[in-house]
Structures are given as structure tokens and as C-alpha cells.
Amino acid sequence: MTDAIFIAVSVLTVGSAILALEFKELIYGAIALAASLLGVAMFFVMLDASFVAMFQVTVYVGAVVVLVIFTIMLVRREAWLQVKDGSRKVLGAILGLSIILALGALYLQSGLSTLQTKENSISIKQLSEEMLTYYSPALIVVGLTLAGSVIGALILSKREKGEEE
């Protein structure tokens, strides 16, 4: 049963990742990306990380993809959005495939499969404790990063005085 679910989620994740890149229309691409990100969230649930899964759905699917869709609709312009692929399609496919094969071979022949699952899963309490004690400077830094990105994005997309419509 778990195997069937695993295969279904894998097909969803990988398939919609490919579709996200291959759809001609960017809007559909963005929706496919959302599906792929949801698939990853399902993997997180399978791996007992439901809090991260929730975070993934709210931030990635809820915020990032919606933002991307808004941007696509804002800059909707045929000539701008349909830039042809380069002549490097074959090269890209070969590179991508060889990375998959190399990583796959490496993981398969390494001793990873001997790693065992832990009995007890990590609770949200543990997560938040770690985050507020050991990782607290990193948390502050991420806050500053978000502040910087908001300030920067605002200034970039703001129209200057004297700039016509």
C-alpha cells in the first residue's frame, strides 16, 4: 500500500516538474510547478515531517507560486514570454540525465540503505526549542534576509517620479 502511494506521488512530483518546464504557456507551467511542490510536501508527510510539509504548502504553494502567477499575468505579452529554447536542448538533456545516473549510481552503491529509521519522530516542540536556542542567530539572520528582500523588491518594482506609464 505504501509502495503504491510512493509511486503515485513520485510520478506526480517528477512528471509535473518536467511539465512545469515544458509547457508552452507559462501559466500552466506555474500550476504544474505547484503540483510538483505539493508532491514534495506529500513526501514530507510520508517522512514524518508534517510541520515542514505544512510550511512547504503555505510558503511555496500558497505564496511563491501565487506570486509567480501574478507576475506572469502582469507581464503577459506574447513576444516577451515565448522566448525559444536554445539549440542546447540535446546538451541539456544529456547533462541532466548524466547527473541523474551519476547521483543514482552513487547512492545505490553507497551504504545509505543501511541507515535505519528512528522510532520516535521529531515533535514541533523539539523543533521550536532548537530554533529558539541553538539556531537563534540564524533565525535573526533569516529575518534580516526577508527584510532586505522586501525592501529591495519594493524599490525595484516601484515607479520613479517622472517615469511615464
Binding site: T145, G148, G152, L156
Partner: peptide, 11 residues
């Protein structure tokens, strides 16, 4: 920290 350094420089 890497991101805090990079994201402002993109802008």
C-alpha cells in the same frame, strides 16, 4: 548569512 549577503547585492 550567505543569502543575507547575496540578496541585497542582486538588488
Amino acid at each position: 548569512a550567505w543569502e543575507l549577503m547575496s540578496i541585497p547585492t542582486y538588488v
